[in-house]
């Protein structure tokens, strides 16, 4: 135990704060703005912008405060354990969010698409429906090509797996007080994540312009873009979180015995990694 932790209270209870009410206002703005925007009413985009800006300011303020408290040593070991539990449960909730969309994918492939191609459905309702996957449904008349697994997606798999390795290497650096290794490893992880996102963007452009594969391409397009899109969104969040950690490392934050901020983000990154592996197998490959 360090000197700081001897002075830490048994369990730190923060003082009243105005951050949260701003966050609620921000989410209300974001929700209303999005509703108006997608329904084509005037102020939508501006409200979204205002809500998003407000949310960023609020998160910056709140997390800044938490980082300040952490560095000033008011968090005892018990608070650290709380952070560990909560991050684990948060990641579990994220797993369940992806489970809903994987559920939709499996349901479409195993139940709804084959059902549309049964004899009575074919003769009475949907002539020409097939059981083949990829399938955009009997009402989709255009030609499209599916995304093949062994091109960019395979490269992306390698990128993310490598980023998991570099992140663990950075963690070893932190544990051994080797700040150079920590910075190098973190930087490499962020760079690999950014490269992944660039390739993902390139893949989307290719899908839209060359493969005629769009969000509107039936159930295949829906599941493909929603699953990979939400994953890409989570990689973006993870990369932002890693960048914050990188900046904190440059400022000299974290010690070998006090660095849950780093570990929490690492857990998140590994979670994003595992989701990608499932995507690679079930969305791209099989």
């Amino acid at each position: 135990m360090s000197q700081q932790q001897h002075q830490a209270p048994y369990y730190y209870v923060p003082a009243p704060s105005t951050s949260m009410i701003w966050g609620s206002g921000a989410l209300l703005c974001l929700a209303m703005g999005t509703i108006f925007w997608i329904n084509g009413r005037g102020a939508g985009p501006w409200l979204v912008l205002a809500g998003f800006g407000l949310l960023l300011v609020m998160l910056r303020r709140w997390f800044g405060q938490v980082i300040g408290e952490s560095e000033s040593g008011v968090y005892s070991k018990r608070v650290d354990v709380s952070f560990r539990w909560s991050m684990s449960w948060f990641i579990f909730s994220e797993v369940m969010f992806f489970a809903a969309f994987f559920g939709a994918l499996f349901y479409a492939r195993v139940l709804s698409v084959p059902d549309l191609a049964t004899l009575e459905n074919q003769s009475l309702l949907w002539p020409g429906s097939t059981t083949a996957w990829p399938n955009a449904g009997p009402g989709f008349k255009e030609f499209f090509s599916p995304m093949h697994a062994m091109g960019i997606p395979a490269i992306n798999t390698l990128l993310l797996l490598t980023s998991g390795v570099t992140l663990t290497w950075a963690h070893w650096g932190l544990l051994e007080n080797n700040r150079g290794q920590l910075k190098m490893g973190l930087f490499a992880t962020i760079a690999l994540g950014a490269l992944f996102l660039c390739l993902q963007a390139y893949e989307y452009i290719e899908a839209y312009h060359q493969l005629n594969l769009k969000l509107t391409t039936g159930i295949y397009g829906s599941t493909f873009f929603m699953l990979t899109g939400f994953h890409g969104f989570h990689v973006t969040l993870g990369a932002i979180m890693l960048t914050v950690i990188f900046v904190r490392v440059l400022k000299g934050h974290f010690r070998a015995d006090h660095h849950f901020g780093f570990e929490g983000v690492a857990w998140y990154w590994h979670f994003v990694d595992v989701v990608w592996l499932l995507l690679f197998i079930f969305v791209y490959w099989l």
């Binding site: 997608i38 479409a108 709804s112 955009a136 449904g137 009997p138 159930i219 295949y220 397009g221 929603m226």
Partner: peptide
């Protein structure tokens, strides 16, 4: 509703029962 996906639309291979 807004972005043209077909999760619950049989014409696109989806299913309201999903």
């Amino acid at each position: 509703r807004h972005f043209g996906t077909s999760f619950f639309n049989a014409a696109g291979g989806g299913d309201p029962v999903l």
